[in-house]
Simulated scan of single mutants.
Amino acid sequence: MRKLFIVVFLIFLSASAVHAQMQLPFEYQQVVKKLISEFGKKSTTHYTEDPAEVSSSTLIDFAKKLIGIPYRYATSNPNVGFDCSGFVNYVFSNFGFNVPRSSTEFANTGNETSLKECKVGDVLVFTGSNPKIRQIGHVGIVYSVDGDKISFIHATSGKAHGVTITELNDYYKSRFLKVMRIL
């Protein structure tokens, strides 16, 4: 929105100068040229790599930059907050992957693999907060695998109430449903 405002303002400024048959001072011309050239560039917060060439470390490095963004139900906007699927969707979408916006839809996204075979960048699919109800309700991205110790990065409504890294502990193991490989 801000970029659109700047462009409209610059066009208005240029049109006003032409209409009044005035030449902008050299300093303003340089500023206008710089702003127009910057407007055409992609945002530095979004990667433009081919999804087939994205490494798990690149994906996780990007995801780590989002740690601390608060939890917010039904959102996938880093300026507002993330819910779990909004976070996973935002991270993968920034690399050109077309992934669901809903945690339940991750059940059929990518290729299922076992927990023993999971790798950094895989998506962990969990039940909601009640492990007795075996329906999908939460997702996260595998952050690290060290033997049997797995950590994942996710947006949680729990204690951290935002994007955080959590160990796959007994509580999350009781909620675990499957691993989906997208990379």
Score class of each variant (00 low, 15 high):
residue 1 M to P: 07
residue 1 M to A: 06
residue 2 R to Y: 02
residue 3 K to A: 07
residue 3 K to P: 01
residue 4 L to Q: 15
residue 5 F to E: 09
residue 5 F to V: 13
residue 7 V to W: 12
residue 18 V to M: 15
residue 21 Q to M: 07
residue 23 Q to F: 09
residue 23 Q to P: 02
residue 25 P to I: 06
residue 28 Y to N: 15
residue 32 V to I: 09
residue 33 K to Q: 03
residue 35 L to K: 05
residue 36 I to H: 11
residue 39 F to K: 12
residue 39 F to W: 09
residue 41 K to Q: 08
residue 41 K to W: 06
residue 43 S to D: 06
residue 44 T to M: 08
residue 44 T to S: 14
residue 45 T to M: 06
residue 46 H to F: 04
residue 47 Y to I: 10
residue 47 Y to W: 11
residue 51 P to Q: 04
residue 51 P to V: 09
residue 52 A to V: 09
residue 53 E to A: 12
residue 54 V to Y: 05
residue 54 V to I: 09
residue 55 S to Q: 12
residue 59 L to N: 09
residue 61 D to T: 13
residue 63 A to C: 13
residue 64 K to Q: 10
residue 67 I to E: 14
residue 68 G to Y: 10
residue 69 I to P: 08
residue 72 R to W: 04
residue 75 T to K: 15
residue 76 S to T: 03
residue 82 F to G: 07
residue 86 G to N: 04
residue 87 F to S: 08
residue 89 N to E: 05
residue 90 Y to E: 10
residue 91 V to P: 00
residue 93 S to G: 12
residue 95 F to Y: 06
residue 95 F to W: 08
residue 96 G to S: 05
residue 96 G to E: 10
residue 99 V to W: 07
residue 103 S to A: 01
residue 104 T to E: 12
residue 106 F to N: 02
residue 108 N to Q: 05
residue 110 G to L: 01
residue 110 G to C: 03
residue 117 E to F: 09
residue 117 E to S: 12
residue 118 C to G: 04
residue 118 C to R: 12
residue 120 V to C: 09
residue 120 V to P: 02
residue 122 D to G: 03
residue 124 L to A: 01
residue 126 F to I: 01
residue 131 P to M: 05
residue 135 Q to T: 06
residue 137 G to R: 06
residue 140 G to Q: 02
residue 142 V to W: 06
residue 143 Y to N: 14
residue 147 G to T: 03
residue 148 D to E: 15
residue 149 K to P: 00
residue 150 I to G: 05
residue 150 I to A: 02
residue 151 S to E: 11
residue 153 I to M: 09
residue 154 H to W: 03
residue 160 A to D: 13
residue 165 I to A: 10
residue 166 T to G: 12
residue 171 Y to F: 13
residue 175 R to P: 01
residue 176 F to H: 07
residue 176 F to D: 08
residue 176 F to E: 03
residue 179 V to Q: 11
residue 180 M to D: 01
residue 183 L to F: 03
